[in-house]
Every structure is written in structure tokens, then in C-alpha cells.
């Protein structure tokens, strides 16, 4: 089983820390951020495979964080995990590229299943991007890969300079 790198973003400290512990017990890597800003900083340090993101948080809200992640790290899959989200919120999140939209509280097995699906999707979309690129369809697919490479290089430089 491959270890999935997961970033959990939620301002409910006890909830998110306990969830993180349970994910670690299932032998995956899990990092916690307690708000949107912290999440974006953690992404600069290390790019996770999947982000589990709360919608309503102080500061930058979940929808804005989702937008920024999809723009800067298009390969990263985002699962929204919210309290009582509306249909409108779900629609918007999916439009912005959320892989999944779940309501809190969620069964750990269900969440893990979605995380694994998101992780699989990450590689499938990368493979698709590569296929498009090879076929000469350089628009979106190539743009995505270029952006990802650019961000990964930028992060490496940042890490070295720390």
C-alpha cells in the first residue's frame, strides 16, 4: 500500500488533530493546518497528494483556499469536508475543481476510501496530461504540467534558502 500524503485543514483543533492521528494509524502521512493561511504555507513546504479542506474557517475561507490550490497546484486533489454545506456550496466547490464534497461528521472508512480515490485520480489525470502532451495537445494539459513543475522548482529553491 502506498503512503498518501494528506493535508488536513480545519479550525476545529481537537477534531482535526484526532482525525490526523487516526489517519496516521492507517499508515498514511498526515499534516494539520488550522486555517487557510497555514494551509497555503504548508503547501509551500511540502506538496501533499490530497487536501481535506473545511469550508468555513476564519481568515481565508475554504472556497478561496480551494481556488488557490487548484491554480498553483493543479495535481493536488481536494476533498471538501464541511458541516452543513448547501447545494450551492457543493456546486461551487465542484466547479472550482474539488474532487469530492463530504459532510461532517464522516465515517473514517468512507473518508479513507475517498482519499484513496482522489490519490488514484491524481495519477490518472497526470497520465492523461502526459498522453495529451504526447499527442500534441499542448493546451490545458501542458499548462497544468508546466505550472506544477514551476511550483515544485520554486518550493525546492525556497527550501534550500531556508
Amino acid at each position: 500500500m502506498e503512503k498518501i500524503k494528506i493535508l488536513l485543514v480545519d479550525d476545529e483543533k481537537e477534531f482535526v488533530e484526532t482525525l490526523s492521528e487516526r489517519i496516521k494509524m492507517r499508515e498514511h502521512d498526515s499534516v494539520v493546518a488550522l486555517d487557510g493561511e497555514q494551509a497555503l504555507k504548508k503547501l509551500e513546504d511540502e506538496i501533499p497528494d490530497v487536501v481535506v479542506l473545511d469550508l468555513k474557517m476564519p481568515g481565508i475561507d475554504g472556497m478561496e483556499v480551494l481556488k488557490r490550490i487548484r491554480k498553483a497546484y493543479p495535481k493536488v486533489q481536494v476533498i471538501m469536508l464541511t458541516g452543513h454545506g448547501s447545494e450551492k456550496d457543493e456546486e461551487e466547490a465542484r466547479k472550482l475543481g474539488a474532487f469530492e464534497y463530504l459532510e461532517k461528521p464522516v465515517e473514517i472508512d468512507k473518508l479513507m476510501m475517498k482519499i484513496k480515490k482522489a490519490y488514484k485520480n491524481k495519477f490518472e489525470s497526470s497520465m492523461m496530461a502526459a498522453t495529451f502532451a504526447e499527442a500534441g495537445e499542448f493546451d490545458t494539459a501542458k499548462e497544468i504540467r508546466d505550472k506544477e513543475e514551476e511550483n515544485e522548482n520554486l518550493n525546492k529553491v525556497k527550501k534550500k534558502s531556508k
Binding site: 481537537e14 477534531f15 484526532t18 487516526r22 494509524m25 458541516g83 452543513h84 461532517k104 461528521p105
Partner: peptide
Amino acid sequence: HEVNNVFASVREISGL
């Protein structure tokens, strides 16, 4: 919303 967060935490803590 707040009460729901309490239940979500209880679920994770008892789940742990």
C-alpha cells in the same frame, strides 16, 4: 454548525 462540530469531534475521539 457549532454543535455539529462538537459531534464531529466526539466521533473522531471515540473513533480513535
